[in-house]
């Protein structure tokens, strides 16, 4: 399956991926509204890790043997036939188990909603928002 990969050698740590991820996962999909007036505010599913000068954007790896799916107590996380780790927000009770077990720290805590937020590979788009909007082509979406 296609996954998002980071090219740390050209990631400039601008965090625009986070901005556009939030926008994509907002109600309005309008960058200004999403950030200024929506409540609860959207949470970015991608997180830029940095130890300057190194930085890269990290989001759910959609692991082949996902720890989160194994450990989720409500079945909110499942692996679908295409290989994606799919998250059902309805079922999440905000226990943070997945947050604890994910070796990458991918699931984010949405404190307002008391649920997690996790990369869904932007099902409404051909290419995930973070990949498309990265100004330096530091993210690629491809089969490896």
């Amino acid at each position: 399956m296609k996954r998002v990969y980071a090219k740390e050698e050209v990631c400039i740590g601008c965090r625009l991926c986070e901005v556009w991820c939030r926008t994509e996962h907002s109600r309005s999909k309008n960058i200004i509204k999403a950030h200024k007036s929506e409540f609860p505010p959207p949470v970015s599913r991608v997180l830029v890790e940095e130890l300057m000068p190194v930085s890269f954007a990290l989001q759910c790896r959609h692991c082949d043997e996902p720890e989160c799916v194994e450990s989720c107590i409500t079945g909110a996380l499942t692996k679908d036939e295409s290989g994606r780790v799919v998250y059902n927000e309805e079922k999440c009770v905000g226990c943070w188990t997945c947050v604890l077990v994910c070796p990458y720290g991918a699931p984010q805590r949405d404190l307002e909603r008391k649920k997690i937020a996790k990369c869904d590979l932007c099902p409404d788009r051909d290419t995930p928002a973070c990949v498309e909007m990265c100004p330096n082509q530091a993210l690629v979406y491809e089969e490896r």
Binding site: I12, C14, R15, L16, E18, V19, I31, I32, H35, K36
Partner: peptide, 13 residues
């Protein structure tokens, strides 16, 4: 200020 979302991209750049 009506547009700025305080994302800090400019700060980092």
């Amino acid at each position: 200020k009506d547009r700025c979302i305080n994302c800090g991209v400019c700060v980092r750049q």
